[in-house]
């Protein structure tokens, strides 16, 4: 029983991480209508930026904020200078652009920072939780994931800008006709997604070490999480993340063994897509032909 509890808590902790990356995916989907395959690699890149800032002697808190700001600007520039050119291109072109970004970020990170694993600090490493069940960093991840969920949910639900963003993703032409600056809204969506990804990266790195390939597995789970929760729903992403995290740990410990953990995510992705494409909390979209 004690072990089971341990597995569940561990699952929730890793699930919170998947949830944050899934939030970035949802952010991007809600503002552009695309699933960004390069989201994980962008987050990895941002984390390296943070590592460099900290290595230069910046305090953690300042480096954190500066990285989020840099990622925001970087995401916006990516949209303005790259994605912008493919707005009316067929889907295959957009997917190829995502793949190009994936390869590019991966290669540039390997080129600048090398393949050696790097330690990334946690801001709460000096605190103790008083129980062996959960570490301070895991609690910190959970708290940040919760806070980001509230922010995002509020942003899309209650602010005009959030509403505009959803409108642009849904129908750019009509949005433009009612006076929304479509191109800037899209750029803003990319910027926000990139900064959420940066936060996710900085939360993950103390647990996994920093390395150009750190996101490959996590991205797969984040896909599964986002899809399971509903790819347009921030609360869905968090629920999906937690469910996937717990399922991964429990199935890994008791059913399929650690060797098949990745395949669990694959099975979740395929099952959700086939049987409930809108996920748990997502909205069913009906398109007029």
């Amino acid at each position: 029983m004690d072990q089971l509890l341990h597995q569940v808590v561990n699952g929730l902790a890793t699930g919170a991480i998947y949830a944050v990356i899934a939030l970035a995916l949802v952010m991007n989907f809600n503002s552009t209508g695309h699933i960004n395959f390069a989201q994980g690699e962008m987050a990895m890149f941002s984390t390296y930026v943070a590592w460099t800032l900290i290595a230069m002697g910046m305090p953690y808190g300042v480096a954190f904020l500066v990285t989020v700001a840099i990622s925001f600007v970087g995401g916006m520039l990516l949209e303005r200078f790259v994605l912008h050119r493919f707005r009316n291109a067929p889907l295959l072109s957009v997917v190829v652009v995502f793949i190009a970004l994936f390869l590019g970020f991966n290669a540039v990170a390997g080129w600048i920072w090398g393949p050696v694993l790097k330690d990334f600090p946690s801001p709460v490493s000096s605190y103790k939780t008083g129980t062996s069940l959960v570490g301070a960093h895991e609690l910190f991840v959970g708290a940040v994931a919760g806070a980001m969920l509230l922010l995002l949910y509020g942003f899309f639900r209650f602010t005009t800008l959030g509403l505009k963003m959803r409108a642009v993703a849904c129908n750019p032409t009509s949005s433009r006709l009612v006076g929304i600056r479509v191109s800037w809204t899209l750029a803003l969506g990319w910027g926000l997604a990139a900064s959420i990804g940066a936060v996710a990266g900085m939360l993950i790195a103390p647990l996994t070490f920093l390395d150009p390939h750190m996101m490959t597995g996590i991205l797969l789970y984040a896909f599964a999480a986002a899809l399971l929760g509903g790819v347009d729903s921030p609360p869905g992403a968090v629920i999906g993340g937690l469910v996937v995290g717990v399922a991964e740990n429990l199935l890994g410990a008791y059913v399929v063994g650690a060797e098949l953990k990745m395949s669990v995510a694959l099975v979740i992705v395929v099952l959700v897509l086939v049987y409930r494409p809108q996920g748990i909390l997502g909205r069913v979209t009906v398109r007029r032909v």
């Binding site: 790259v82 652009v97 793949i99 190009a100 590019g104 290669a107 080129w111």
Partner: peptide
Amino acid sequence: SATGMLYAMVLL
């Protein structure tokens, strides 16, 4: 890393 960067640029 040059391979990945070159691939990315050529793709784009």
